[in-house]
Amino acid sequence: MSEFLASLEFINYIEMVVSVLLVVLAIFTLTMKSLIKSVLFLSSLSMLSVVSFVLLKAPDVAITEAVIGSGLVTTLFVFTLLYVHQKERDVS
C-alpha cells in the first residue's frame, strides 16, 4: 500500500496545489478593496509559503517564517490599522 502511494508521487501534486494557491492568494492580497482583508490574505500567503518551505526541505526557514513573517508582520499591520481606526473614531 505504501509503495503504491509513493508511486503516485503525492509530493508533486501538493507542490502544484501550493504553487497555484500562492499565486491566487498574492493576487487577492493586492486586489482586495478592504485593507484588513488584504492583510489577512498576506498572512495566509505567508502561511502557505511556510508549507512550500517545508516541501523544499528547509524546516528552519519554515519555523522562522511562521513566527516572524506570518505572526509578527501581521500583528504590525493590524496594529497600524487599529491605530488609524481609533483616530478616525476620535475625529468623528
Partner: peptide, 22 residues
C-alpha cells in the same frame, strides 16, 4: 495606497525567499 505598497513589498519578499530556497 501606502499600506498596499508595503503589502506589495512583502509579497515581493516572499517570492524572493521561495526563489532563493529553490
Amino acid at each position: 495606497n501606502v499600506i498596499k505598497i508595503i503589502l506589495s513589498l512583502n509579497v515581493l519578499e516572499i517570492g524572493l525567499n521561495i526563489f532563493i530556497i529553490t
